[in-house]
Amino acid sequence: MNDNNSSSIKVWDLPVRIFHWALVLAVSGAYLTHEAGIEYFKYHLWCGYAVVILVSFRILWGVVGTYHARFWNFVRNPIHTLRYGVDLLRNKETHYSGHNPLGAWMVIVLLITLLAQGVTGLFGNDEILNFGPLYGYVSNELSLQLTSIHRQLFDLLVDAVAVHVLAVLFHLVIKKENLIRAMFTGRKPHSQANSSLEIQSSRLWLAALLLLALCAALTWLVTHAPAPEPVSFL
């Protein structure tokens, strides 16, 4: 690890890396607990909380986080992005210290889709046994509409995740860029990153504070939500 430090550039701070892999776990968990059956709903909910918290955190971190985590340091305009795509297909050397322009848009799409997926789930209900924790804030009709979106968005999410994973594999196999390792170590080789853009700190205290605030806010919302009371006629 230590000799790594001299020959590589640190680009991803610890919060970004933890966010990324925790999100992978939370999303996989949400899928599996849905498939597992209706009695695992409680755990589906926990995974959903994790997704909402993580994605909200990442959006805030895109404003106040370290250099390569900030949206305006990595989101490029469409023309720039298109040019990058063409260069990529022509096999030109195209390295970005942080996210590349296409990856940047993938980040935006995934964050928005996941946030929508998480939030609609919180208000949903399955018309059988289970209610999302924020169901009590909305009408039953709206809850059903949000549930429908929650079900439909899943298909979009699967496509987006597939594109994301395939793109990373493309970089690994064709471009010889190991983005997966970088997302674990936070470091990219000198040849693939600009040393003047190396990050110096992970701003861990700020990250912890944000995370705590988000958890507190969600907890408040959930505990103050009116409990669903399905009427029994018997």
Partner: peptide, 23 residues
């Protein structure tokens, strides 16, 4: 960059709304 980020968020909001309209 800020402008582009804002525009992308707006675009995504429109797309989500379109999805919401389906049912």
């Amino acid at each position: 960059g800020l402008l582009v980020t804002g525009a992308s968020l707006l675009l995504s909001a429109i797309i989500s709304l379109a999805v919401a309209q389906t049912p």
